[in-house]
Design a protein around this nucleic acid. Sequence first.
DNA 1: ACGGGTCTGAAAATATTCAGTCATTCACTT
DNA 2: AAGTGAATGACTGAATATTTTCAGACCCGT
Lengths: 291, 291
Amino acid sequence: MTGETKATISEIIRTRYADLTRKERKFADTLLANYPVAGLASITEVAKKADVSTPTVLRTAKKLGFKGFPGFQSALRAELAQTLSSPITKHEQWADEAPAEHILNKFATATMDNLSSSLRQIDYRTFDKISKLLADEGRKIAIVGGRLSHTLADSLATHLQIIRDDVTLLSASPSRWPHHLLSMKKGDILVIFDVRRYETNLTDLAKIADKRGIKIILFTDQWMSPVSARASHTISSRIEVPSGWDSSVVTMFMIEALVASIETNRWPQTRARINELEEIFDATRRFLKKP
Amino acid sequence: MTGETKATISEIIRTRYADLTRKERKFADTLLANYPVAGLASITEVAKKADVSTPTVLRTAKKLGFKGFPGFQSALRAELAQTLSSPITKHEQWADEAPAEHILNKFATATMDNLSSSLRQIDYRTFDKISKLLADEGRKIAIVGGRLSHTLADSLATHLQIIRDDVTLLSASPSRWPHHLLSMKKGDILVIFDVRRYETNLTDLAKIADKRGIKIILFTDQWMSPVSARASHTISSRIEVPSGWDSSVVTMFMIEALVASIETNRWPQTRARINELEEIFDATRRFLKKP
DNA sequence: ACGGGTCTGAAAATATTCAGTCATTCACTT
DNA sequence: AAGTGAATGACTGAATATTTTCAGACCCGT
């Protein structure tokens, strides 16, 4: 689609500037002076700002080779979109050896898009608050996931257990949940992973936990699980990929970033724990030396 | 950030996102996905691109606190003009509201780098071969992971079990592995996840499996687990992030891409299985409707 | 200063958009 | 399984934007 030597509109204007009449130049000048935003309003406003009449603007647009004012404007927009798209996202092909339509490339594009728009959407203050909450060893933590998001819950639990005490991964089967809730007190934390299709069990669990004064932190997708009504803080990720189901990659990213943030918040304790762990593992000789 | 009290429109959307309805979010999403250009066309075009009706777009604009669509749009333009006039274009920043040194931004940069260099390195023919092998229902599949990579193994197992029969996730504890190996025959497949620090147990397991003629598929990191000597095919990912340990995001990506590829290779069977599953889940009423 | 041509904007004609209303659909509740 | 209330989109008239038309203004030569 790209690859052509497509001239920008400002270039076209410069090239054809000699052909323009006095008022046409006045319009062209104001456009270039505040390029390209000055051209994105309605023709009336644009004309008024350049202090020319609407027909003049229209004639200029046509002279520059566009169908009409809307055509001119959409060309401006397209050009702007090109400029604004981040250098990484606009990559057309990722695994350059593979054909563009190979699943690796399609998947990579979708994932990059997901990641960058999730990041654009996230509120880093929320992120920081969650990080603080999870770092607070005065609060017990329980983590639970749904059918497919269970592995994400598992992953968060595994990492948090390295960092701090009192982290429990609730089993996948809801029958044991009430028992766990009993052992939690007000101010403790329940982390819920719920992506579509949202599970009624989790919604119910959230309701009960909320009533008991347990803080709920929710990881969900862009469509927001109903649990969000009960949650103190929510992190939502984009999860659509060209596949029969949804992607966990971005949520995994969020988990890891969060864990890294918590780790930073309580580095002295974390380091001590990691060292202890390392010693234990060294003693059991279950691991090869670090490369 | 800049310390001004003026909220950008993307911020307003983030803040009020919870108040938006399904279709309103869809519009907000498409706007954020291509921000702010996606909002600069006429309301009709904008609505069509977001696949919602014009009233929905209008309602959203009003909900966000604007007078009407034109008001909303001119706010977008004003903001864009502001952004474009500022001298520094922030390229390395992902969560634009957050400071550049915020962990989210550092993590995002690292992850994007990891993903793109892993993709540049991967041989798509290997990828396709693995996809074919795992799609072959004549071969039983066993999946095993290490201490931290266990969740990855779990994830692959969960997805593969949806697609096909004879997929087993080996438990985290090595004592039960020999038993499993006994039930596998020549030509069956053992998928091993091993990232640093590499576990001797997994190396031993690979040796035994190899001797029995079991094909080994390995997911590892850029430094390559010793298992790779025994593996028929290896997929390696970059895993370094600014954190005390390594990232699973890219490996997760590989898993999902692989599953999507397998799914495509045997779509008729997969579709049948998924439909069956959906029916079962519908019957148990454990899920809410799709958004 | 005059006449031929081009340029320009007022205003009319046309097309499009905007913002309501209302019936339908959809998601969830009992 | 049916009911309920919110969400959504087709439709509509009013408003606005775009385009065309055309008469007058302007520039240039003589």
